[in-house]
């Protein structure tokens, strides 16, 4: 069984993360836990000292916990498998705290919500964070919840490792979702359309591995151009799969243009 943890705050992005995970949970054997990492900021600015300050801080934290609990409860109506939230104590780096939790609990998938933005700054900041640079497990950045029938698009710049395919198959062992592979060659001269590349050398070993595990890749193609010229290709899928690209790289720019949920593999 896939062990999943969703980071939940009292906001819309978290609702999207929950709905996205629960949608997966309807076709994949998985547990869906929720965690909320209390932020040091949630203790607020000191308004006094001694017991007054302590009482006020406790109230702020309690309020935050109540909001998260209410949000999870409200989503449980549509997702019975959703577990009540686990609260992680505050720490300076939220990502470190979550990463430790994921490792110590042997989670196979981490899900967090992120509202897709036209301006990519926050996305770049996120994928440049220590958490994303050292992913403890596959991480789903949930941005929208389109139907699973829209399939999965795997983005690569030419090389797909067997380890990544193995990790992917660990999440989708029963081929519940159709998979396409798109090899992106970034350059100035965009080609008119994606070309068939089923025999591309960089991906052959991984594809063979995938097929030997009983999987099929619906389509393998290559596209050349700038991130902007490729944007239309990453707009209409259930999931986009990729490794975490370097911050501000061309692949990161392309991913920032996708409103689909993004599955990052370590």
């Amino acid at each position: 069984m896939l062990k999943t943890a969703i980071a939940v705050d009292a906001d819309l992005a978290s609702r999207i993360a929950i709905r996205c995970a629960c949608q997966l949970g309807r076709s994949i054997d998985m547990s869906v836990g929720t965690i909320h990492a209390l932020e040091p900021g949630e203790e607020g600015h000191a308004i006094a000292t001694g017991w007054v300050r302590q009482t006020w801080e406790d109230a702020v934290v309690r309020e935050s916990m109540d909001q998260v609990t209410r949000l999870v409860k409200s989503e449980q109506a549509g997702c019975r498998m959703l577990e009540p939230p686990l609260f992680l104590p505050p720490e300076n780096d939220r990502g470190d705290r979550i990463a430790r939790h994921l490792r110590s609990n042997h989670c196979n998938l981490f899900v967090e919500g992120f509202l897709h933005r036209y301006k990519p700054d926050l996305f770049m900041e996120k994928i440049g964070s220590r958490f994303y640079r050292t992913l403890p497990c596959p991480t789903l950045m949930a941005q929208n919840v389109p139907p699973m029938s829209k399939g999965v698009l795997w983005l690569s710049q030419g090389k797909v490792t067997e380890k990544m395919m193995e990790t992917y198959l660990g999440i989708f062992p029963n081929q519940a979702i159709e998979l396409e592979l798109l090899i992106c060659r970034f350059g100035k001269n965009p080609s008119a359309a994606a070309k068939d590349s089923s025999s591309a050398s960089g991906v052959e070993p991984a594809v063979s591995f995938f097929e030997s595990a009983g999987g099929t890749i619906k389509n393998i193609s290559t596209v050349e151009g700038s991130p902007s010229s490729m944007a239309a290709l990453v707009r209409d899928h259930f999931l986009i799969v990729s490794s975490v690209p370097p911050q501000n790289s061309l692949m990161a720019q392309l991913l920032s243009k996708s409103p689909c949920s993004l599955l990052f593999l370590p």
Partner: peptide
């Protein structure tokens, strides 16, 4: 806007429509 988006998602879901959402800074 987030609260409104949440409400709209709920509204359109009720009509069998799953909307895509995104945020755009007015300056962009």
């Amino acid at each position: 806007i987030e609260k409104k988006l949440d409400w709209l998602i709920h509204y359109f879901n009720g009509k069998g429509i799953q909307p895509w959402i995104q945020l755009v800074a007015l300056s962009y």
